[in-house]
Design a protein around this nucleic acid. Structure first.
Lengths: 240, 240
DNA sequence: TATTACCATATTGCATACAAAATCATCGAC
DNA sequence: GTCGATGATTTTGTATGCAATATGGTAATA
């Protein structure tokens, strides 16, 4: 039964084992594979923001026909990762500074839910250990001053916190391609010395979460958000 | 130049004028049109949750080929409005009670950002009047006990608040098909007498927002979220 | 030189074609 | 009657084809 899929997948250069793994993993179709591949391409800076994506070329690159490529491009357009204009094809979206700042505000606001619910459940299972491990990765990336890894580990911290909180929608949301896309674009924000205060805030908040004191955690995170909003506001002055 | 599109659109029964309006409005392709049409179908309860969507049938219904239908279905699958399993086609997604509750938590948490930022900007332009008008619609729908209209007006209140707050990402997010889809599904929640307290909370919060007192608004909304979480928690006991 | 008109080429949008896979009804064994 | 096998039918996934449209370059004009 599995082997029947091979004919469709080997066109893109996957061998039988890989195809089986792919299929059993998530029942992925070529389209899902292409969506992943294109997003990965952006993550790895192989496709630059603003760059045009030509269906024919992608089809050739992945050794498939234009049909699944077009379907994938439509998915990504719905996601806001590419911009799709009728009869003019697709481009990787270019995010303005304003868009990236708005997104940062958005995720910070969302993280509050994780803080609220997460503190309630931090005692259960190995939640405390898992969350703490992820925070270590943040600290580690920060000590290396690696913007990409820093943003990435923060992203995983948020996911972990919301996973602990037990709200599946938040997790579903965080894993969407456009969230990954927006998140990676935050790495270019580099708002100078502000990150110093940013991570110091998170360090405090993380410690409070570990104690399981919801009231204190919410209060501290609320102050953090106010701070984010205020410095964003000032940062924003000289921009569109 | 415009007329050249006609041949593509008249297949789905649109006349030249309609096509021109459509095109000039948002440069929509057939796919975008189909996405809208299918989402509308769900909103109008023509397609029920769990119902299978057969590409061939949809193509016939809209008088187009399967290619754009499939592209639209992939967009909707990415959105989480339909469920797409390889070789098994698409179904309108069925949301569990848990999923709907998680979503409600999610939007409430998000609304906090609007409350925070909105109070800052409530004085500008005709923000106060527009927000108040939307709240009147909530009250009106509530007085008629019309679940659909109630949820819909609440949705528009959230959008309005976030529009005032000036965060474009939140607005972009709220207008996504899957958010509309999830929101409409909230109408079936009908958590008994709880809505009474829910709207009474919002009435208070709305009044505080109008005064522009950010600190008080945030504090009051924070209490509201705690209340939502707590009653959700108890409501949740006997369910998956 | 700068600007426009024009044509060749590239690319898109949608339709169609066909093999692979799932679904469904029928039948037979128990 | 229930269960499982078998084959016809339906439906999917992808490839290909073709007309509509955009793009880019060249030549003609001012």
């Amino acid at each position: 039964m599995e082997t029947l899929y091979v004919s469709r997948y080997e066109a893109i250069g996957l061998n039988v084992t890989e195809v089986r793994a792919l299929k059993s993993a998530d029942n992925a179709s070529l389209v899902e594979y292409l969506v992943e591949a294109i997003v990965d391409g952006v993550m790895e800076h192989r496709y630059a923001p603003g760059q045009r994506l030509i269906a024919t070329d992608l089809a050739e690159e992945f050794n498939v026909s234009r049909a699944p490529v077009r379907e994938a491009l439509h998915v990504l357009a719905g996601e806001g990762v590419v911009e799709l204009v009728a009869n003019r094809g697709a481009r990787i979206r270019k995010l303005t500074l304003k868009e990236r700042i708005d997104f940062l505000e958005f995720t910070e606001a969302l993280c509050m839910l994780g803080v609220r619910r997460g503190t309630d459940r931090i005692e259960k299972g190995d939640n405390r250990e898992k969350l703490d491990d992820t925070f270590v990765e943040i600290e580690e990336a920060w000590s290396r001053r690696h913007a990409g890894d820093f943003v990435d580990s923060l992203y995983r911290y948020h996911i972990m916190l919301n996973h602990i909180s037990g709200n599946n929608f938040v997790e579903f949301f965080y894993r969407r391609p456009y969230i990954r896309f927006y998140t990676i674009m935050l790495a270019d924000l580099t708002p100078g010395g502000h990150w110093d205060e940013y991570i110091s805030n998170y360090r405090e908040i993380h410690q409070i979460i570990l104690t399981g004191n919801q009231k204190k955690a919410v209060e501290r995170f609320s102050r953090h958000i106010s701070w984010v909003l205020s410095f964003m506001e000032s940062e924003n002055v000289n921009l569109n």
